[in-house]
Nucleic acid binder design. Structure first.
Length: 220
DNA sequence: GACCAGGCACATC
DNA sequence: GATGTGCATGGT
């Protein structure tokens, strides 16, 4: 190989952590809140998600059983600010059916399942794809699973570490085979990549010249 | 007014 | 299997 993947990934993490420090993810008060937000944040800015979460909280509805019992149209109205509200209301209901039906709305019960089986179960829910499933596993249930998102893909691609159209699983494997298998590391690493993406790796007009990572392959 | 944001499912070829 | 499209608000 042209470069050492383990060292490169460790180097990226080191640089990001030195530059940005701990990101304290996930920004939610409870594991259940993280689960709900993971669905609401699909292709949506975090600000809009926060508003929706605040509304649910204020109404006292942010519990598995209450949300599960809530009429879909009413739920859509509560999460309006998060966009795609009809789609997301349905997706939330689909998830809640599983969470309440199979685990009685208990984070502890769900957490006791084996990670792979749970991941497959989450992926079987209509509206939960790989990023949402992995966000729930890592940030709500503390399972050692690396989360890949659009920023991760863009950053790796622009630094020539993976192809621009590399599939989700390939990028996830890239991290999980070459970085320490630790919840704390995966948590911080993904959050730091999002921070870098927001500040320096926009979709258009990338500020690559200022990128804190510099030229990875030469210095990595 | 255009572009973008911590995706996913589905239709069509 | 690849590619395109709908879903929608709110900030820049």
């Amino acid at each position: 190989m042209a470069y050492n993947r383990k060292k490169t990934l460790a180097s990226i993490y080191r640089r990001l952590y030195r530059r940005f420090g701990s990101q304290h993810w996930w920004p939610g008060e409870t594991p259940f809140e993280v689960m709900v937000a993971a669905i609401l944040t699909q292709n949506t800015s975090w600000q809009n998600v926060e508003k929706a979460i605040r509304r649910l909280k204020k109404a006292g509805l942010l519990t598995p059983k209450k949300l599960n019992a809530l009429d879909k149209r009413k739920l859509a109205a509560y999460i309006h600010s998060a966009g795609y509200f009809n789609v997301k209301a349905l997706r939330l209901k689909n998830f809640l059916k599983l969470f309440v039906g199979n685990y009685a709305g208990s984070v502890k019960k769900m957490s006791s399942r084996d990670t792979q089986g749970l991941r497959e179960e989450l992926l079987s829910v209509n509206g939960i794809g790989p990023e949402t499933a992995d966000s729930i596993l890592l940030y709500a249930l503390n399972k050692p699973v690396f989360v890949v998102d659009a920023y991760t893909r863009r950053i790796l691609s622009r630094h020539g570490l993976t192809g621009p159209d590399a599939p989700y699983q390939e990028i996830q494997n890239f991290f999980m085979k070459n970085a320490k298998n630790e919840v704390k590391l995966y948590n911080e690493y993904h959050a730091l990549l999002v921070k870098l993406g927001k500040d320096f790796c926009l979709k258009s007009a990338p500020k690559c010249a200022l990128c804190p990572l510099g030229d990875l392959k030469k210095t990595g």
